[in-house]
Amino acid sequence: MKEDIRERAIEAIDDDLIRDAYESENVTAGSAKRRSVGIKRAILIAAAVLLTVCGLLMLNGNVRAAVIETIRGSFLKRDGDVVGVSFVDPDAESETESVGSDVSAESVGSADAVSIHDVEIGYIPDGLIMEERDDFTGEVRWVYLEIEPENEGRDFPYVQMSISRSGNFSHGFGKGVYDKYVYQSTINGMDAYVIETSCDYEGEQVEIDIILFGDENITVNIHSTGLNIEEVTKIAENIVW
């Protein structure tokens, strides 16, 4: 009965919606769009690299070395293609906030460039991603942070986060949105768990999704040019490891 209703309800979606979904994104249009996305991505990556190089020329030796390292770590590849690039504004102050079951957030971010105003914790339903991760046997957790950038003092909103597991693994990744283009980064595979991220830009909001595969004792560290203490505590309360 349930299945029947489910199928009939979906089947009877308005004709114009069904037609639109087919006509707007048929195979040919899809190819064109992919090409367009590829070109746009290449242009934006080139622009980001150019901006970074210009920034480097203005820095002293020590800071320059640090920034080079960050940039090197931020070129992420997937199936051979560069899918994202981000870089850090060396002049911005930054603080680190640590949240997790056994860590409380105590320090306060130094600026208000980013604030987190909504947190949802959920589970990825079975079968969505698990089947492609046959080496993974642990529990899947999904964390959704909706971040509203205030954009002060920067060309684009920026937040950097890192995930560590039982203190023996740590990997950071940054998110930057420049204009309406989304820099995506994906970091795959370390021991028994995988981190997947995606980033959407919708109107005034940057949404960052972090999908965690792993067991307990995972700590999320958030580095940002600004997170206020209440918001960070809110994350700590919501993440139940």
């Binding site: 994104e25 195979v27 899809g30 990825i124 995506q184 994906t186 997947e196 995606s198 959407d200 999908i211």
Partner: peptide, 11 residues
């Protein structure tokens, strides 16, 4: 078709 990553579509 869209040039999106898998996680983006799933989310």
């Amino acid at each position: 078709r869209y040039g999106y990553g898998k996680s983006r579509v799933l989310v």
